[in-house]
């Protein structure tokens, strides 16, 4: 019985770090640029497609990883320069509408390029098996890799934001944009970097989700909603909040599915979110006070 809970806890953790990778980019973009980017899920989808294509072509997980992160970062950068840069000063409704237009466009573009059928993404033998953890308890290797990568990325994000000059600018930008610009920081290029960084993380999430879930059109739309839930619970603009909330959502969702009746399981995290917003409208770790 204890092993059952251990397995579910690991599943929840793995789901949680995937959500964190999605939410980290989203929360930075919202915290600094004040932009609601519904198309963030489409970047995740692109990452998965780039990875699946590269993996099929070369058979190398490493090259697939590079394709997923770098190509998705490039797509994100392109979107920022062409469209999103115009949206920062618009109101939330315009942002919701325009980024929704981007979702329609990218979903259809992917359907044209890769077709409507889900792509296979087969793991190489090294990652496809299971690892024995305690006694007879085994757990899929790749899922353990996901957890490890997610936690490493979280640590790197923490270092980046608290220990580097770029991170300092990101924090300053979230606190007071006008002042940062007045002090001579090139705010436009800072925005582009942050956006590309968020896109790379979404691509990484897509790359790791590919072998577990199906690589198909619209795969990002449901994940996006979960990532939004995470950043709302965690507090908009706070990467630390995103990590805590992502793990919380991952665990609540996973345990909800095994412990609650089916009709309530899917509602669990939304109930948590409504409760958090009701008590603390700014989320658990409100970045802007």
């Amino acid at each position: 019985m204890a092993l059952f809970y251990l397995e579910q806890a690991l599943n929840g953790l793995q789901f949680g770090v995937l959500l964190f990778l999605m939410a980290a980019g989203l929360t930075l973009v919202f915290g600094i640029m004040n932009l609601i980017n519904l198309a963030h899920g489409s970047l995740y989808m692109l990452g998965a497609y780039f990875a699946a294509t590269m993996l099929t072509a070369t058979g190398s997980m490493l090259l697939a990883l590079l394709a997923a992160t770098l190509a998705t970062a490039l797509c994100g950068w392109l979107l920022e320069v062409v469209l999103f840069g115009r949206l920062y000063r618009r109101d939330h409704l315009d942002q919701v509408l325009c980024t929704f237009g981007v979702i329609l466009f990218l979903n259809e573009l992917v359907r044209i390029i890769w077709g409507p059928v889900a792509l296979p993404m087969d793991l190489p033998p090294v990652l496809a098996g299971s690892v024995r953890l305690v006694g007879d308890f085994t757990y899929p290797t790749f899922r353990l890799v996901i957890i490890a990568v997610g936690l490493v990325v979280a640590a790197m994000m923490f270092v980046l934001i608290t220990r580097t000059r770029l991170g300092m600018r990101i924090r300053a930008g979230a606190a007071d944009r006008a002042m940062v610009a007045a002090l001579g920081v090139d705010i436009r290029s800072l925005y582009s970097y942050v956006f590309a960084l968020g896109a790379a993380l979404a691509g990484l999430a897509g790359y790791m989700a590919g072998p577990i879930l199906a690589v198909q059109v619209g795969m990002g739309d449901s994940v996006l909603v979960l990532a939004l839930v995470v950043i709302v619970i965690g507090g908009i603009g706070s990467v630390r909040g995103a990590l805590v909330a992502a793990l919380l959502v991952g665990l609540v969702d996973t345990f909800g599915r095994v412990l609650l009746p089916a009709a309530l399981a899917d509602m669990g995290i939304y109930t948590v979110m409504a409760a958090v917003l009701f008590v603390r409208p700014d989320g658990l770790f409100a970045a802007r006070g």
Binding site: F30, I36, H92, V96, V229, Y270, T271, M273, A274, L277
Partner: peptide
């Protein structure tokens, strides 16, 4: 922003 998200969350529920 919170209003947008919370209406979305309820609709998903």
């Amino acid at each position: 922003f919170s209003f947008i998200m919370i209406t979305l969350a309820f609709a998903q529920m």
